[in-house]
């Protein structure tokens, strides 16, 4: 099994590692039993631009590289566009992944989606709280 140069680059120098304490949305997917956990933190502006993104990942080289690449692909982009991020786009940006590692890119897509869902749920909660006030 051989990783592309891009995968090795993102594995060795992962972009946007860490946490955002006041994140607008946090998504966690996977479990330690299956060997991968990804956590995505999004900071979303009022006009719904992904201003900042950070990740933490437990997993293989591909899991770390796909998380890193996903953050690069969505940082600074409008939410409407970020929502459409596919795992294929992550794989393509990494110049391919070994077949057994494709599930890592799916996990990265799901982590972003989970963070967006968390943002939406929090936003709705806030709006409802405002309504009742």
């Amino acid at each position: 099994m051989q990783y592309s140069e891009r995968v090795l680059d993102h594995f060795q120098h992962p972009r946007n590692v860490g946490e955002i304490p006041d994140a607008s949305g946090v998504g966690t997917v996977g479990n330690a039993k299956c060997g991968d956990i990804m956590q995505m933190f999004l900071k979303i502006s009022d006009d719904e631009i992904v201003e900042d993104v950070k990740f933490k990942t437990f997993g293989c080289g591909a899991a770390i590289a796909t998380s890193s690449m996903a953050t690069e692909l969505i940082k600074g982009k409008p939410l409407s566009e970020v929502e459409k991020l596919t795992n294929e786009a992550v794989v393509e940006a990494l110049e391919g992944l070994p077949p057994v590692k494709i599930h890592c890119s799916v996990l990265a897509q799901e982590a972003v989606q989970a963070a967006i869902a968390d943002y939406r749920a929090k936003k709705q909660q806030k709006e409802e709280a405002q309504k009742t006030e």
């Binding site: 090795l8 437990f58 293989c60 080289g61």
Partner: peptide, 14 residues
């Protein structure tokens, strides 16, 4: 604990 084998192996290999 807390990390996965392959990423250790890859770092060691590099």
């Amino acid at each position: 604990r807390y990390i996965e084998s392959e990423s250790i192996l890859l770092m060691l290999d590099l």
